[in-house]
Structures are given as C-alpha cells and as structure tokens.
Amino acid sequence: MRRPMLDRRSLLSLGVGAGASLALPRGLSADTGKTYKILMLTFRGETDVERGFRDLLDTAGLKTEIISRDARRDIANLPSMIADLATLKPDLIYTWGTPLTLGVAGPFDSTDPKFIRDIPVVFALVAAPVQARIAPSFAAPGRNVTGAVHVVPTDVQMKAMQSFMDFSTVGILYSTSEQNSDVIVREVKAFCDGMGAKVLARPFKNDASGRPTAEGVEDMVAQLRADKADWLYLLPDTFLGTIYDRVTPAALAAGLPTFGAAELAIREGGALVGLVSRYYSVGQLAGTKAVEILARGTPASKIPIETLKRFSLIINMRIAKSLGIYPPIAMLNYAELVTG
C-alpha cells in the first residue's frame, strides 16, 4: 500500500473549518489617528503568542497602548489585575488561556455581574471555548468574546501521524477525570474506525482521592507495545503533560514512536513528532480579531472563533535516531527538525 503523500498545504488544511478570510482587510493599514488602549492579561509572562499579537497590530498600522499584566501562574491574582477597569477604560481586553478568559468574561450563560460584558475580549490559547462555556459556538460567539483556538483538530493530527508512518493500532494513555481527554479518545476512535485501525485506550490508575497517578505507567507503555501498538498518541491531557519524563523514556525503551499533541511534548517531553499550532501564529490570529473589532468596528459577537489554517510539524531527530524511525523524506520539505 502506498502511504498517502500529503504536502504541507493539504495536510495542514485538512479538516479545518472554513472561516472568513484572515487576510488583512484592504485599507485597514490606513492611519486612523486614534490610539487604542489594550489590556493584556497573561498567565505566565509574555510568550510568542503575545509577540505574534503585537506584531500583527503593528503590521496593520494600528496605534496601540498595551498595558500588560501577568498572573504569575496563579489565577487568584486575577481580581487585582482588573480592579481598576473603571478608570483604565481599555478598548479591548486580551486574555491568555482558559482560566484567565473564563475569569474575565465568565460563562456565556452566566448573569454574575462580576464578569465583564461591555468590553470586547479577545482570547488566545483556549483549547475548547465551547466546552468551557466561554461561547455557545465557534461560528457565532454571540457575546463580547472571540479569539483564537490553538488545538489542532484530532483528525488532522491522525492524518499527520499516518503520513509519518502508517499504522493499524494506536495506543493512548489518558485520565478518566478529564472530560476533554474523553472527547479526544472518542474522536481518535472515530477516525481509526474509518480507516480500519484499532485503538488501545488505557486510563491511568486513580489514587484514593480519584486523582490519576503515574503508578505503573512504564508497564502500561510496555504492554501497549506488546499489544502491537504502532504509535503512542500523547493527547492534550493535563495530567499526562506532567509525566512526559516517565512516559516517553518508557516508549523509547519499548521502541514505540510517540506523537505529541502539545508542542512541549516534542521539544522537551521526548516525543518523536507532533503537529501543533505555532504560538506566534495563534497570536497573529488573535491579532486579526482585535484589528477587526478596533479598526473596523465589528462587534466581537459577530466574529467567529477560529483555529489556524495551517499547522506545523515538529520532528525530534534525536528520538528518531534512537528509534531508528525516520520521517518520510518529503516531510522534510515542511517539517521543523529539533534535537531536544
């Protein structure tokens, strides 16, 4: 069987919902003279996301005054960060991640007055805004919130995995306590059913308080390999993210290639390959939303929440060499090779 050859464009645009064109609207770069005040709320300092956001506003020719405040990785700091909103009067609030966004804007169906409903909020790096009840749907947020989602659709990830190396069985380790993981496991199963492949989804063991533990993960990985898994898919599971250092060495020892859903999994977590949204590009995407709100006056409620149109393939060559599993040569045309 010939492995499906996908070029970067077709691979990376698979399964992505069609959205409005993201090209900068014409005439937007005109100097409108007004300086817009943006309150930027970050969770762990400024990252590439914010760089992309700022770069896009600059490119669009918007004059902005950005007030940046950081939660220092603690959501409890949020109230103090937005205490002076009444005097600050920002034209737009930028938020990083689900906790900050939810903390600022609240669920869409909440009537709690502490949530902000009169200032447009543009988020970046929220994985599942609908599940988190930030907005009722991607296409029409219907409220003062819109933004950029960074997760890569599951089926697009599966296709990338297949392009790297075809498979008949894929192994997954996940936490039963995480609703999001549950959804993704189901999506993986749906995709694999379509291509006639098997999914071995094994939950982590829970401790007495019902929280997942890393106990015996090495054996679980070895068992997946023994059960003929061709890939270990590292889904975006919060708990899994904390134990990469135990999972990937076990996979490497078992000769099991790993496909990571999060960028960190490949760069630092020892996964072989992954398809990710570039943080910089996610920031740019959020930037286009801000430009549309500020310069064009489109209400946030009418601007769809979107994912990127293209994603990036990252291959860890150190892992590839250890496993002796190399990417198809055509992938080198569009993959980023790291040696972390």
Binding site: R3, M5, Y326, A330
Partner: peptide
C-alpha cells in the same frame, strides 16, 4: 535509512 524515498520519487 532514508524513509519514503520511492513514494517521494513517485510523487
């Protein structure tokens, strides 16, 4: 050890 070369050539 190059992978996917025949497929690339075929393409």
């Amino acid at each position: 050890k190059l992978a996917g070369v025949p497929a690339y050539f075929e393409d």
